[in-house]
Amino acid sequence: MIGVRNLESLILTRHGESLANLAQQQAHQALQDPPEEIDVCDRDADVPLTERGRRQAAALGRRLAALPAHERPTVAVSSPYLRALETARIALAEMDSPLPLLVDERLRDRETGVLYRLTPHGVRVRHPREAERRERLGEFYYRPPCGESWTDVVLRLRSAYRDIDTDHAGGRVLVVAHDVVVLLTRYIVEGLTEQRVLELARTQVANCSFSRWVRRDGRLHPAEYGDTAHLAGPSAGPGRGPAG
Rank of each mutant, 00 (worst) to 15 (best):
P145S: 11
Q204Y: 10
E111G: 10
P98K: 06
T112P: 05
L10D: 00
S149H: 09
A20M: 05
P234E: 08
L174V: 07
R143D: 02
G16P: 04
R156L: 11
D96P: 06
T228V: 08
G241A: 11
Y161G: 13
R212A: 03
L49G: 02
R134E: 03
E17Q: 13
N6S: 06
V40H: 10
R5F: 03
G61I: 08
R136I: 08
H15I: 04
G171L: 01
L231D: 00
S209A: 10
R212G: 04
A30W: 06
R186F: 13
V173M: 03
L99Q: 10
L198D: 00
D167N: 03
P234H: 12
L137G: 07
L19V: 07
V125C: 05
L137D: 02
P145D: 02
A20W: 01
A201T: 08
L102N: 09
L22A: 02
F210G: 09
C146G: 05
T74F: 03
R156S: 13
A69C: 00
V123A: 02
L64A: 01
R14Q: 00
R240E: 01
F210A: 09
Y116P: 02
R216N: 03
S159L: 14
V205S: 00
G237F: 08
E8I: 04
L157E: 11
Q25V: 05
L85K: 13
P35L: 08
I90K: 14
Q29R: 10
E111S: 15
G244H: 10
L115Q: 01
M95R: 05
F140K: 15
V153F: 07
D152V: 11
D44I: 12
V153A: 07
E194P: 07
T13N: 05
W150Y: 08
V175M: 14
A236Y: 08
P98I: 09
R106W: 15
G170M: 01
L183Q: 03
R134N: 06
S209V: 06
D104N: 07
A91D: 03
N207R: 10
E37K: 14
A201D: 06
R143S: 06
A169L: 09
I38D: 07
A243S: 07
D104T: 11
L22K: 11
P234V: 12
R129K: 15
S97R: 10
L115R: 15
T193D: 09
E105Y: 15
G237R: 11
A91Q: 11
P35V: 11
A30I: 09
E190L: 14
D217S: 12
A223K: 12
D227C: 13
L184R: 14
L198N: 08
R62E: 00
G237T: 12
A65G: 01
L7F: 05
D109S: 07
V77M: 05
